[in-house]
Amino acid sequence: MTNPPHAAPASDRHLLLFARRPELGRVKTRLAADLGDEAALAVYRRLLAHTQAVAAPVAAHRTVWLAEAGPAADLSDEWGGYEQQPQPPGDLGQKMQAAFAQSFARGAAAVVIIGTDCPGLTTAHLTAAFRALETHDVVLGPATDGGYYLLGMKQLWPDLFQNKAWSTETVRAATEADVQRLKLSLCLLPELRDVDTAADLRAWEAAAR
C-alpha cells in the first residue's frame, strides 16, 4: 500500500503523549478538590487507559513524556509500544516545545501531541490530525474550556508555546492568534471536553449513558 500524496510515512509521524504515573494526591488535583484523592485517581486511571487505547492503532512513532514520579507512584505500566522520556523542566509550553523539537530533530515530518484529559478523543481524531498536516501547517483540537486537547504541526513554530497563560481559558485564542499572525494554515478538529472538574466528570458520565 502506498501513502497518499504528501503524506508522511508512519515512521515520520510522531505521536507524543504527556502523562503522569498514577499516584494518589498527584493526579487530577482540581478534580480531587471536589471528589477526594482516591476518586480522582480512579478517574485518572480510566482516562489514561482510554487515551492509550485510542492511540494504539495510530500508525506513528509513539513517545510518552512522563512527569517526574513521586515515591508512591504506580510504576507497573510498562508503556509497551512507546518510547519513554522524562518531561523536561519549565512550564507546559517549554516542555511541549522541547518535545516537538526532539521529534523534528530526529526527522519527523508531522508531530501531534495530546494529554490524558479528554475522554471524547478517538482514534479517528488522531488519524484526522495527521491527515490534516498533509495540507495544513498546524492542526488544533479545541477544548470547551478554552484550551486544546491536541496540537499538531509539521515544523517547529516556537511562538505557539510562548507567552501563554497555561491552564486558563485564553490558551486556544492566543494560539490561534499566533497562527494567524505567522500566516500559517490551520485545521480545527471538533471541539471536545476535557475532564478537570466534577462538572466535567458528570457531563462525561451522562454522555456515556
Rank of each mutant, 00 (worst) to 15 (best):
D196K: 06
L192P: 00
L133F: 08
W166I: 06
G147N: 09
R193I: 04
D194A: 12
L192W: 05
L189R: 01
E134Y: 05
A129G: 10
Y148H: 10
K164P: 00
Q162L: 08
V138A: 07
T144K: 07
L192E: 09
P190H: 09
P142A: 10
L160I: 10
E176P: 00
A165D: 15
V171I: 14
P119Y: 09
T127R: 13
L150V: 06
M153T: 10
Q155G: 01
T123I: 06
L189Y: 02
L133Q: 01
P142T: 10
C187L: 12
W166H: 07
S167R: 12
G146Y: 03
F130S: 07
L151V: 10
A124H: 09
P190Q: 14
E191P: 05
G152R: 06
E176V: 12
T123G: 08
E134Q: 14
E176L: 14
F161C: 06
R172G: 01
P190N: 14
C187D: 12
A173C: 10
F130M: 11
L184V: 14
L140S: 04
T175K: 01
A173Q: 14
L133Y: 04
E191C: 12
L188Q: 13
L156N: 10
L140G: 02
C187M: 15
A143L: 03
G147A: 11
M153K: 02
D145F: 05
T123E: 13
T123Q: 14
A129H: 02
W166E: 05
V171P: 01
V195T: 14
R181F: 10
A128C: 07
D178S: 14
T175A: 12
R172W: 04
L121P: 02
T144F: 08
A143H: 00
L189T: 05
L182D: 06
A174L: 11
A128L: 08
L186G: 12
D137I: 02
D178N: 12
D196S: 12
D145S: 10
D159V: 11
G141I: 00
Q180Y: 08
D178F: 02
T197K: 13
R181T: 12
F130L: 09
G141F: 03
P190S: 15
T123H: 03
T135P: 02
